[in-house]
């Protein structure tokens, strides 16, 4: 059998809608039998945060960052029409009506399809995110991990 094609997505954004696009593409590519990796960096790391309140040891600055950033995919804001939190509520209602999969389900589906979810360790340090705050069963890496996958990727996206 021919070697599998690769799809690599860099998820930089911490917006619900953009993250949804990234995960829909990732799941679609996995259905095309691609090896898929999503590299979460900067605000995109928030998609991997656990919903629960955890209190790992942190500096003051790290605590502030932790408080200001959304805890998990379901709490992320929209890139447009946020309306102080009304926007996400509205879009989730519309999604339900149209049977679109909510973002947390898309992330579960990604895991089920063996998509590699990778967290950038350098930006984890910057934002003060600890491994125990992020989902289990993810991988950690840096730019070299992306380049290694990206140099023979059929699809490379930055979202």
């Amino acid at each position: 059998m021919a070697e599998k094609k690769k799809t690599n997505i860099i998820l930089f954004s911490g917006d619900y809608d953009k993250t949804m696009a990234a995960y829909i593409i990732a799941n679609g590519a996995a259905a095309y039998d691609h090896d898929v990796t999503i590299f979460h960096t900067f605000w995109g790391l928030n998609a991997l945060r656990k919903d629960e309140k955890l209190q790992p040891k942190k500096s003051f600055m790290e605590k502030m960052f932790g408080k200001m950033m959304p805890r998990g995919a379901n709490n992320m804001p929209l890139s447009k029409m946020q309306f102080l939190g009304m926007g996400p509520k509205m879009i989730k209602g519309v999604m339900k009506k149209h049977n679109a999969m909510p973002l947390p389900d898309l992330i579960d589906m990604a895991k089920e399809q063996e998509i590699t979810l990778l967290a950038c360790t350098m930006t984890m340090d910057l934002l003060g995110l600890k491994k125990e705050e992020l989902l289990d069963d993810i991988e950690y890496g840096g730019v070299a991990a992306y380049i290694a996958e990206g140099e023979d990727g059929a699809i490379n996206l930055f979202i």
């Binding site: 829909i24 799941n27 679609g28 996995a30 259905a31 095309y32 039998d33 149209h98 049977n99 679109a100 999969m101 589906m109 399809q113």
Partner: peptide, 13 residues
């Protein structure tokens, strides 16, 4: 039926 993108493809696979 009733499923939205990307589910028809994912389920077909």
């Amino acid at each position: 039926k009733g499923l939205a993108c990307p589910m028809p493809i994912v389920k077909t696979k």
